[in-house]
């Protein structure tokens, strides 16, 4: 097999590629933050009676909250801020498809590249 000689990349090309990677990193990490897609999906279940008892805290728990500087009013939004685990099947299916498609592409394309590497490496000998 003929040895593959890659093209030399110009300095401008290198700078452009670095820019592409930097932009991609920022889009991947910053965009979910900007669009509000990042962070926990929690919401507060409000209670009318804001007492330690109503908040489900026994005497030991209440004393610790107070030691930490909280009252039933200030602790309410912490204690009642809960996850609501409802499985959203369309989103779960989309997530599974995206993950599977990604890994399938990754292994198939990698294998194609790997065969070129192995052929060139071992045909030299």
């Amino acid at each position: 097999m003929a040895r593959y000689t890659p093209p030399e990349q110009s300095k401008a090309g290198q700078v452009f590629d670095i820019a592409v990677v930097v932009v991609a990193i920022f889009v991947a990490l910053w965009l979910p933050l900007k669009l509000g897609l990042a962070g926990a999906a929690k919401s507060i279940d409000p209670l009318d009676a804001k007492t330690w008892d109503a908040l489900g805290q026994n005497a030991t728990m209440a004393s610790i909250w107070e030691k930490l500087g909280y009252t039933p009013e200030t602790a309410h939004d912490i204690i009642q801020n809960r996850f609501h685990y409802v499985i959203d099947w369309p989103t779960l299916i989309i997530m599974a498809i995206v993950l599977i498609a990604y890994f399938v592409f990754l292994f198939r394309a990698s294998d194609k590249e790997y065969r070129e590497v192995i052929n060139e490496k071992f045909d030299d000998k």
Binding site: A24, P32, L37, G39, A41, V98, Y102
Partner: peptide
């Protein structure tokens, strides 16, 4: 997925 599903999809799309 339970709580941070959108973030997972966004990151995987990036890697793709």
């Amino acid at each position: 997925f339970l709580g941070f599903g959108s973030q997972l999809i966004a990151m995987t799309v990036f890697y793709f």
